[in-house]
Simulated assay, not measured.
Amino acid sequence: MFKKQILIAAFAILSISAFAQETTFGVKAGVNFSSIGGDDTEEIDGRTGFHVGGLAEIMFTDQFGIQPELLYSMQGATSEDTPAGISIKEELKLDYLTLPVLAKYKFAPGWNLHLGPQIGFLLNAKNESEVFYEGETESESEDLKDYVSSIDFGLSGGFGYELDMGVFFDARYYLGLSDINDDNEELDSDYSVHNNVIQLSVGYKF
Rank of each mutant, 00 (worst) to 15 (best):
G120Y: 06
E162K: 14
G154E: 03
E130Q: 11
S141F: 03
F153E: 01
F159L: 14
L155V: 15
S156Q: 12
L144G: 02
S139C: 00
Y133S: 12
G158H: 08
S149R: 13
Y133N: 11
F132M: 10
G154K: 01
D164A: 11
D143I: 06
A125F: 09
F159S: 10
Y147L: 13
E128R: 11
D146P: 07
N124F: 08
S129D: 05
G157Q: 09
E136M: 12
F132T: 11
M165C: 14
T137E: 13
F132W: 09
L122M: 07
E142M: 09
N127C: 01
L123S: 12
E130G: 05
F132I: 13
P117V: 08
E162S: 15
E162P: 02
N127I: 10
L122V: 01
S129C: 06
E140C: 00
I151R: 13
G154T: 01
E138F: 15
A125R: 09
I151D: 12
K126L: 02
F121R: 01
M165H: 10
Q118M: 15
T137C: 01
S129G: 11
D143A: 05
F121V: 00
M165I: 13
L122G: 02
L113I: 14
F153K: 05
L155S: 04
S156A: 12
G166R: 03
K145Q: 13
L163M: 15
L123A: 12
S129P: 03
E128Q: 12
N112D: 14
E162R: 12
S149Y: 00
Q118S: 11
Y147S: 13
E130M: 09
S141C: 02
E136D: 11
G135Q: 06
I119Q: 08
M165F: 15
N127E: 14
D152G: 10
S150E: 14
I151N: 10
S156E: 13
Q118F: 04
G166W: 09
L115Q: 00
K126H: 14
G116S: 06
G157D: 09
